[in-house]
Design a binder for these strands. Sequence first.
DNA 1: GGCGCGGCTGACAACGTTGTCAGGTCTCAC
DNA 2: GTGAGACCTGACAACGTTGTCAGCCGCGCC
Lengths: 348, 348
Amino acid sequence: MIHTVAETGRGRPTMNDVAAAAGVALKTVSRVVNEERGVNEATAERVRQAIALLGYRRNDGARVLRRGRTASIGLVIEDVADPFYSLLSRAVEDVALGNGSLVFTGSSGEDSLRERELVLAFCARRVDGLIIVPAGDDHGYLVPELAAGIRAVFADRPAGPGLDVDTVLCDNTGGARAGTAHLAAHGHRRIAFLGDNPAIFTAEERLRGYREALASAGLAYDAALVAMGTPQQERLHADLARLLALPDPPTALFTGNGRTTVTALRALEALDARPTAAGGIAIVGFDDFELADMLSPAVTVVAQDPANLGRTAAELLFRRLSGETGPAERLRLPTRLIARGSGELPPP
Amino acid sequence: MIHTVAETGRGRPTMNDVAAAAGVALKTVSRVVNEERGVNEATAERVRQAIALLGYRRNDGARVLRRGRTASIGLVIEDVADPFYSLLSRAVEDVALGNGSLVFTGSSGEDSLRERELVLAFCARRVDGLIIVPAGDDHGYLVPELAAGIRAVFADRPAGPGLDVDTVLCDNTGGARAGTAHLAAHGHRRIAFLGDNPAIFTAEERLRGYREALASAGLAYDAALVAMGTPQQERLHADLARLLALPDPPTALFTGNGRTTVTALRALEALDARPTAAGGIAIVGFDDFELADMLSPAVTVVAQDPANLGRTAAELLFRRLSGETGPAERLRLPTRLIARGSGELPPP
DNA sequence: GGCGCGGCTGACAACGTTGTCAGGTCTCAC
DNA sequence: GTGAGACCTGACAACGTTGTCAGCCGCGCC
């Protein structure tokens, strides 16, 4: 039988309230809530009724305090609004949910200070683990956290020096090499490179791949054909205007990430120099993007698989959380060249 | 002076450990950590040194248990990987961070059961508030949570019946009306409608707008010109093939959301019926999308502002959390028609 | 009748923090 | 010399849960 209970007014009911309502001890409620065996079915039913009556829900914060594990992880990326990271996020979420874990998400906005704040805030909430796409390259602040048992996996970019931690990267150099070589194989000898800020690990690796491909093709590296920086419309417009005005202008363009590719296409349009099916400057871009196949010409890309990146990192994290030991892993995920037209245009 | 302390081995240092190391009482450490005034500067400095030495970080879980507020909110959307929701997410994140709050994110995948699980899991963590893009239309499970003081704001779609809660919606009907009227104004009399599953609130509202615009233009509603369902490639391909094979086929197409627009464009391409600058079926799509302006012809859209939606919902939530009372608000955000070419093609 | 055992229940401490309250020391004015 | 007040510090309970341990009851067996 259910005893009515004087509602204490404000605030949520606790196990104590449920216990009082059901006429049992606190601990019995705990057992029912956690579906432990050894509770008489009639008693359990009375407790369940009291729970429903009061709208009780277990306070996981208190539970965590008692047990240690929070069943939550933190994900720090550059920007959820960027398709690359949103695909990565979704994959991380799915793996986490499959492991009974919730996900704190935060965008650093390529600001190492904000990255640090987010990570430490997550650590203060005692997340079990972290997946980090770092913005900065000093992660000393993580040392005490790792020592305290929080596991971290770095994704897309490695941790700063001195941190021996699991890392999942993309084959940036190989991908850029393949993309650049593809252009060279189609007869281009003046290939420009538009990349992100060279302080960013991936941008620098991709530049390296570009240079290696040039060398393999017997082409000289010409600094005048390289422009790097944040992919803003105005900057790219100016860079491309400069490149096209060179006495010996490039006949092909390798762009270092998705945002740069799209922005460059817009800038070329504004400069009246966008490739057409009939011809024009050839383009290969790092990163696939939505509708690349619907432009004319369709855009040839070196595709990464951001979902795979997120999934791999998350699975690695959960393997660690379930006790897997061993030295820090450092994985490289492959890229794939998708020829669609813009990278197969011949030089004039 | 710092006393050395016997490291207890596993686990993180607590305030107690710091207190022992600094030779002060637990409460003094608490005061220093929380930057309360009234602590002698020399003492405080000793405590800070002990904190640094031990790598101490406050356990926010315990703090929350004591204080009641968690400084975290939960965000449930359909899919972070969808650009619409990823823009919304970013806006929510930014507002939350500005209010000193962290964000749990979860994708329901348009599954009402998963929505419920996510929301209740967030509630068990005692988030202060929720922003929900609902997948289902029964939110009875939220009643006890709301009664217990968790604030919720529904975004993009309303809560199920019986729940009187803050809601931020888009002007779906008005937008669809404007888009359809735009096509009619350009001379089209056979306008097809491709929408999402009509069980989804926004899809149904947009269909209504489409019908209203037809009526205003003196055009008859023809069920044969309407196809609704999940925007999968095969389904849309079949629907469009059927439409184009009609004895009196449509000369224009209104598509009910971003995913549908993009998928329909691909299907038209496969059917060799994609519009060109020279002519073809006219298209207006609900939702703007990246590169809509770079296709040929560029795609005319009825644009929502997902970031604005997220920001508005989050700001409303935080106003509630900071004590604003009053009846539940129900906001409607405007849409904007952006003419780019595909919607201005004349009928043949 | 006594003993052991399985099944069920409850009392109590502990998790790491903060709010409350009390106490101690010092300074200053009377 | 004493009281008032400012300043600093600490003891203790409480937040809501779970782990540990002990106890009760009824049963079957010696």
